[in-house]
Computed example of a mutant assay.
Amino acid sequence: MSSDAQTARPSGLIAELRLLLMAVQYFTRVPMPAWVGHSAEHLSGTARYFPAVGILIGAIGALVLWLTSLVLPGPLPVILSTAFTVFITGAFHEDGLADTFDGLGGGATRERALEIMKDSRLGTFGTAALVLTLLIKIAALSAMPVTIAIGVLIAGHAFSRACAVTLLFASNYVGNPDQSRAKVVAQPMRPGELLFAIVIGVAPMYWCGLHALAGVVCSLIVLYLLTRWFMQRLGGFTGDTLGATQQLTEIAFHLAVLASWNST
């Protein structure tokens, strides 16, 4: 191997590590070293690492779930775990979910829906969607043994973000580029980048066993329905609808795995 190739490889690895850490910095409140940076030029390449961020968030939530289950009864460990994941992400995806339902529920036209989605105020549709989503998530995980819930939590966070990346790949961005924080990351992806994201999103399912297959199927059905809905109402996706996709496919994964586990 030439000396040029030897020097090129570390720089490539460092560049990929930087993209990963930038994705973590963008989607969580986890502090990153100053050298990571946050330029729009580099953020546009972070989408393939979204499922990896999901693994990190799911693992942190799983750790909180396991530790609290040692000393607390009932649904409290799941509630605390869910609260911690919401905190560590700054309710980023939950906010997108609420805005999506406010916009599509209250906007009769495409333009009005997009206008409502950019309003920082929380409306009836968004509040209902947010409360029901959190309740379903907590109820589903509480119905599982802790050992099962830990694996489902990590896999659900990872695969749901792979679903959001798939929407990003398959559709087009229709938000206001001057007002949207998501524009810098919602850039066109190459097929190889999508495949990379999907592989990362699927990897944690090893811990869920064959029950994960039900989760995948159900999540993909929800992804398909959401994609059609967004295309019909908006003509594409926005940053908010990506957040809604992540939340709803995560819930679909939880419920399907729970149903599969209960049927055995």
Rank of each mutant, 00 (worst) to 15 (best):
D4M: 09
P10E: 06
S11E: 11
G12P: 00
I14E: 11
L19C: 10
L19P: 00
L21V: 09
Q25V: 05
V30R: 00
W35P: 04
W35Y: 14
V36I: 12
R48T: 06
R48P: 12
V53P: 02
G61M: 03
G61K: 02
W66R: 14
T68A: 11
T68Y: 04
V71C: 12
L80E: 04
T82S: 06
A83Q: 05
A83F: 08
V86S: 04
F87K: 12
T89V: 12
A91P: 13
A91E: 06
L97Q: 04
D99P: 01
D102H: 05
A108Q: 13
A108V: 13
T109S: 15
T109P: 12
E111H: 03
I116P: 09
M117E: 01
K118W: 01
L122E: 04
G126V: 00
A128K: 04
A129R: 08
L130D: 01
V131K: 10
T133N: 15
L141A: 07
S142P: 03
A143K: 05
I148W: 07
A149T: 02
A149W: 00
I150D: 00
G151V: 04
I154A: 04
H157T: 10
A164Q: 12
N172S: 12
D178K: 04
S180F: 03
R181L: 15
A186G: 09
A186T: 14
M189S: 11
E193F: 10
L195C: 10
I198F: 13
V202Y: 01
C208W: 00
L210I: 13
G215H: 09
G215V: 10
V216G: 07
L223W: 06
L223D: 00
W229N: 04
T241Q: 00
L242V: 15
L248I: 14
T249L: 08
A252L: 07
F253G: 00
A256I: 13
L258T: 08
W261K: 10
